[in-house]
Design a protein around this nucleic acid. Structure first.
Length: 579
RNA sequence: GCCGACAUAGUUCAGUGGUAGAACACUCCCUUGGUAAGGGAGAGGUCAAGGGUCCAAUUCCCUUUGUCGGCUCCA
């Protein structure tokens, strides 16, 4: 552990001491060092954010007392005696072999260290208590929620200030802030949380990305299909979603009656129920099963930008990155066993191509191999053999493609393991985007078959994959990635033309006519040139053209590129050539 | 859903137990301009919604809705 983290960890202990001083009845949870700081969890602590100031003051006071940290190894029995009033520590004690205690003044904590020797090693100006949050003990929803206090801490005051500055800067890149400024989308209280309303510029951005996506999929041997937004409940029972995914699904629609009849509520019968789709797979399978298939057709690659609805808990919603209605850039690949590896590799190549194309370098992307939790098998469908095989294949393929990935137990989909790609947002939070899932279960549940070269029926293999994950999330991350300065092909307005005065308007429109293959806006409001330049710059428009007497006389345009680069006076043809 | 912070004009924000203000945006007028905000006037608000306390609530309390930071969950 480096010195900074040792200090963070020690500050967590000091936080606990300070809290215990004031709130005598609290019970201690855990208090580790984390990225940029530390936290400590407490039970039986009712506290508001405004109370943090006082706790911070107490911490500073403790630090100034030059208290020492003493490490001591003790027997389990002894530890149980020391922590007899700390139920969470007792629970943790049962899970460890070697018991180590750190003593700071009268305070003792169960801890492996390391710590500083004395609080005089801490500069009291290098940390800050930031916020309060609820957090489940040991991160398990089934456990009690404790009160967590977060602090930030750095080696030096300068580093602390730099971090605060970074947070402030990150806010400017926040896609929710930029969306307002660039007029891209909003959510509306009257429409419902987590449902995106795309404004013209945002919808155009979306469409440009979708067109690019379609073009690339056709080039890569995919075919496009289209499926509805709702489907009969029976379908979801068969797929297993009803049992394994119902916590994320909207309640059923009574499809045997109109809203008018339903509103009358006159003895509703056991009616046919429809469900909003949370995933596209069962529909794609239905298309597959509508025909007999031969091994010669394989691989079949079917893609759809499919809009799905998931009932995400209220507190989980966030901007474009976590919503309730979103469009997956989905595809399912059906193939023979001998084609699986090759198909998986092709998908990985496709994913990496997309990242490169949009300029995400792999330092901002983390890759995870999401496996089944062997201790919680009831959360998944299918047998051990199938899981072992598919996990091994995914691992092999990821390795052969040279991906640096982390394996995570319990992160698999209910029907199979996944290879997940997560992109960091402006605040360095990770969001799952691309996903590559190997499924041996749904083909079985839906009795999918194909005829092999011996004329026998055989079960196909199925790959689920998304490159963006969803258009919403990916566009959200893209907005932050570009800080709203979209590359030329994606900019909703590519060029603004500013006539110097009213008398230059006609020429401005003539210029637009010659640039009609681009998205051009003539700014003909009765405002000063400076103001219109500023407006164009704030809108992050890639090129700003100014036309006045000089340009009319020379039959040219004056061009300025985003980022304050003056390209000078050009002929229109030269400008188009540049583009 | 849970813990914490919030919700005032189209936007970003001040403010108050006696029914509200700025800046930008908007409309009109003046200005006819040369590379990041020319000047003036006007219009715009059930202070998120519902309930309660009070002579009186935008302000205090409760509930709901929505937003933000966490936790859990997830594309």
């Amino acid at each position: 552990m480096n010195k900074e983290n040792i200090i963070r960890h020690s500050l967590a202990h000091i936080l606990a001491i300070a809290v215990k001083e004031k709130y005598k009845e609290v019970k201690l949870g855990m208090g580790p060092a984390i990225e940029n700081g530390f936290y400590y969890d407490f039970d039986n602590l009712e506290i508001e954010e405004k109370d943090l100031k006082e706790i911070e003051k107490r911490m500073k006071h403790i630090i100034k007392q030059n208290v020492s940290f003493e490490e001591r190894e003790v027997s389990k029995k002894e530890a149980k005696e020391i922590f007899k009033n700390e139920p969470y520590k007792l629970e943790l004690l049962d899970e460890i072999d070697k018991v180590c205690i750190y003593k700071t003044g009268d305070f003792r904590d169960l801890c492996n260290g390391p710590h500083i020797k004395n609080t005089k090693e801490i500069d009291p100006n290098t940390f800050k208590l930031e916020r309060i949050a609820g957090a489940y003990f040991k991160g398990d929803e089934k456990n009690k929620m404790l009160t967590r206090i977060y602090g930030i801490a750095f080696e030096s005051k300068e580093k602390l200030e730099k971090y605060l500055e970074f947070q402030k800067e990150a806010k400017k890149r926040d896609h929710r802030v930029l969306a307002r400024k660039l007029d891209l989308f909003h959510t509306d209280e009257d429409v419902g949380a987590g449902l995106i309303l795309w404004h013209p510029k945002g919808a155009l951005l979306y469409r440009l990305i979708e067109d690019f996506w379609i073009k690339k999929h056709l080039e890569n041997g995919y075919e496009l299909i289209r499926t509805p937004h709702i489907g009969n409940r029976k379908l979801w029972e068969k797929s297993g979603h009803f049992g394994f995914y119902s916590g994320s699904m909207f309640p059923p629609l009574e499809a045997s009656q109109s809203l008018e009849d339903a509103e009358k509520k006159e003895d509703i019968k056991e009616s046919e129920q429809f469900l909003l789709k949370p995933m596209n797979c069962p529909f794609h399978i239905a298309i597959y099963n509508s025909n007999l298939h031969s091994y010669k057709e394989f691989p079949i690659r079917w893609a759809e930008t499919g809009t799905v609805y998931r009932f995400e808990k209220k507190g989980e919603l966030s901007g474009l990155t976590r919503v309730r209605g979103f469009t997956q850039d989905d595809a399912h690949i059906f193939c023979r066993k001998d084609q699986v590896e090759d198909e998986l590799k092709k998908v990985i190549d496709f994913i990496l191509y997309i990242y490169e194309f949009f300029g995400f370098d792999m330092s901002s992307v983390n890759v995870y191999l999401s496996l089944r939790d062997p201790l919680n098998k009831e959360k998944y469908v299918g047998d051990d053999e199938g899981w072992d095989f598919s996990e091994a294949v995914l691992r092999k393929v990821a390795k052969e493609k040279g991906l640096h990935f982390k394996e995570e137990l319990g992160e698999a989909a209910f029907y199979g393991p996944k290879l997940d790609f997560k992109i960091k947002d402006a605040l360095q939070r990770e969001w799952q985007c691309s996903t590559l899932q190997f499924d041996f279960n749904l083909p079985k549940r839906f009795e999918m078959t194909f005829v092999n070269d011996k004329g026998e029926k055989e079960k196909p293999y199925m790959i689920h994959r998304a490159l963006f994950g969803s258009f919403e999330r990916f566009i959200g991350l893209l907005i932050e990635h570009y800080e709203g300065s979209f590359p030329f092909w994606l900019a909703p307005i590519q060029i603004s033309i500013i006539p110097v005065s009213v008398s230059h308007r006609d020429y401005a429109y003539k210029v637009r006519e010659q640039l009609k293959e681009f998205r051009v806006k003539v700014m003909d409001e009765d405002e000063t040139v400076s103001k219109k330049i500023r407006e164009s710059a704030v809108q992050k428009i890639p090129y700003i053209i100014t036309v006045g007497d000089n340009e009319i006389e020379n039959n040219t345009i004056s061009v300025r590129k985003r980022g304050n680069q003056n390209l000078g006076e050009l002929t229109i043809n030269n400008f188009i050539k540049k583009l």
